[in-house]
Nucleic acid binder design. Structure first.
Lengths: 162, 162
DNA sequence: TTGTAGGTGGTATAATATAACATTACAAGC
DNA sequence: GCTTGTAATGTTATATTATACCACCTACAA
């Protein structure tokens, strides 16, 4: 797959198309895309980076959609559970999924300079990790694959603290 | 590499040899293995699972080695920075390194049932993830690779909530 | 002897996350 | 219509993880 996200693109589509895709998937699967859930997904889609739960909560609060932590955590749980968003463990933060609905094993490229997060694909269970797991009889159910480094733009700006 | 850790083994060696290896590496590199640092490493080595910082702190506290969070976080920072321990992002917890001192990219197999954590090796930067990164010009500096699932023992006990 | 660097010990607080319980909305079945 | 079950919401309180910051101490070199 291509991790296209570092390039410039018409970002207005990202939000609209993203929410649209989630709405469609919800309808198909009989899931309720409630106002809070929809808004959280929009917020996540609005930037190609990972956002903390409390950062999202601030926005919801400003809009009167809920003011307490459980509100945002519940919405995030829903989105993550159904594959519409992912948690970036390294950052304890969340990001919208690139191809919502499709089952996949996400992997992330995280720029430590600008904070951009791009979803790539990796099938670690099929690579060296899967081999090691097989060898000892470990059954992999979920994987976390995250790479931290410098995105193309930040590399070009010169190594500030590389 | 072999992820041998799920099997039974003579565990007394794990602690002694582990601390020994760290002490040697510190001497070779001119690092100070102070009492707190040594004790934290021992505590991590004492179990093949990941331990939370506050869990470690409880032990230190009981032994009069320090009672405040910064004490344990400083020791963990030191150990992680120099490759003697790793942070398991998925669990926000820490575990001793299998081959301290050697530079390597750790990967973990985490049993969701019994909490066992075993370090394996993976070179994700060389696999699909590395390819995706190259493609977009992303420079990988560090990776997090963690798999969650069931260890052999827990698989045999029957799928309690699989 | 005076910096300076690294270590320690501590307070306070920030940031992330969940437990627990009351309330509301709505559809299914009587 | 009424009741019942389920899912979502609202809210309080608290748990868990992590860091900022300041004071002090020791070794060691300028």
């Amino acid at each position: 797959m291509t991790a296209w996200g570092f390039e410039k693109h018409d970002h207005t589509h990202c939000i609209a198309d993203g929410v649209e895709a989630v709405a469609t998937a919800c309808q198909a699967r009989g899931l309720q895309l409630t106002p809070v859930r929809r808004r959280v997904q929009e917020i996540l889609l609005s930037e190609h980076r990972a956002m903390g739960a409390y950062e999202i909560l601030d926005t919801l609060r400003a809009e009167g959609l809920g003011s307490q932590p459980p509100v945002v955590y519940r919405a995030l749980d829903f989105l993550v559970k159904h594959g519409f968003a992912h948690k970036v463990e390294r950052l304890n933060a969340f990001t919208a999924c690139n191809h919502p609905g499709e089952s996949h094993t996400p992997a992330f490229l995280i720029c430590r300079q600008c904070g951009a997060v791009v979803e790539a694909a990796a099938e670690p269970a099929k690579g060296a990790l899967g081999a090691a797991a097989d060898q000892v009889g470990f059954e992999i159910e979920q994987t976390v694959v995250e790479a931290e480094g410098l995105c193309p733009a930040c590399r070009n700006k010169g190594p500030r603290n590389a």
